[in-house]
């Protein structure tokens, strides 16, 4: 613990706080999952994946630069899991948006769906084989993390899926009742901020907490939608 830097503490606190918030969210959404709907199940998986992202982030970031036995392996494994689950989260989010907001209007063929997710599956495979060729990131013998040549393309694919999910949410919600709905930036901003700040600064990982905050806002916005009727009782 004496080797922990200031930003290690910050990342640890943020990721632990993320896990606590997501556990709370699972407790709060427990009753809704009893409906057995597909979108509720997908939301559950999204929360679980987000918790794994936060957990692997803790492992990867804390092991960076440390000198304990097996530290390079721990960092490599932590960051591999981090990027795999991060990509998976983006893909599941897009699918969740399709099911939740298009639902029964989903008339796409299976072929179309497969083609849409091909970049994601290629990315997952690339992250997996990164263990052997360091194309996305690599860990030096001194246990220092370095970005590889495919680091930026990886983020392009991940951000593409998140943007597509948000665009789906906006398009199909706005096409419904015509009411002024919750602004897109509520869902978009935390995750994009988290990804951009982590990408630029790299000192503290804000991506997991950005994802968790976006998931929280998605849930709250959905709950708002299904209770969005005029309140007719007067004030006390």
């Amino acid at each position: 613990m004496s080797e922990l830097t200031i930003f290690n503490y910050t990342t640890l606190i943020l990721d632990l706080g993320t896990i606590v918030m997501l556990i709370g969210l699972l407790m709060v959404t427990n009753v809704l999952r009893q409906r057995g709907r597909a979108d509720d199940k997908l939301f559950f998986y999204m929360v679980i994946i987000a918790m794994v992202i936060a957990g692997s982030d803790i492992v990867g970031y804390l092991a960076d630069g440390k000198s304990f036995f097996g530290a390079p392996f721990v960092q490599q494994a932590g960051m591999q899991v981090f990027y795999l689950t991060f990509t998976l989260e983006a893909m599941v989010w897009t699918y969740y948006a399709d099911v939740r907001f298009k639902g029964w209007h989903m008339n796409y063929s299976i072929l179309r769906k497969v083609i849409f997710y091909i970049p994601g599956f290629i990315l997952l495979t690339t992250i997996f084989i990164n263990s052997f060729n360091g194309c996305i990131f690599y860990v030096s013998e001194e246990n220092v993390y370095y970005r590889g040549p495919l680091f930026i393309p990886m983020y392009v694919v991940i951000v593409f899926y998140f943007i597509w999910g948000f665009a789906t949410m906006t398009r199909y919600r706005n096409a419904g009742t015509g009411r002024s709905l919750i602004p897109l930036w509520i869902y978009f901003m935390p995750i994009i901020l988290g990804v951009v700040v982590t990408f630029i600064l790299g000192s503290t990982s804000l991506a997991p907490v950005g994802i968790a905050v976006s998931i929280m806002f998605t849930h709250l916005g959905s709950m708002n939608e299904i209770t969005d009727t005029e309140y007719e009782e007067g004030e006390v």
Binding site: I182, P183, M189, P190, V213, T229, Y231, E235, V236
Partner: peptide
């Protein structure tokens, strides 16, 4: 992070229809 979370909660709560104003 705390501020972003709270701003989002304020906006979402503010836009909800069926809520007691007080």
């Amino acid at each position: 992070i705390a501020i972003v979370l709270l701003v989002g909660v304020i906006v979402l709560y503010g836009r909800a229809g069926r809520r007691d104003k007080t």
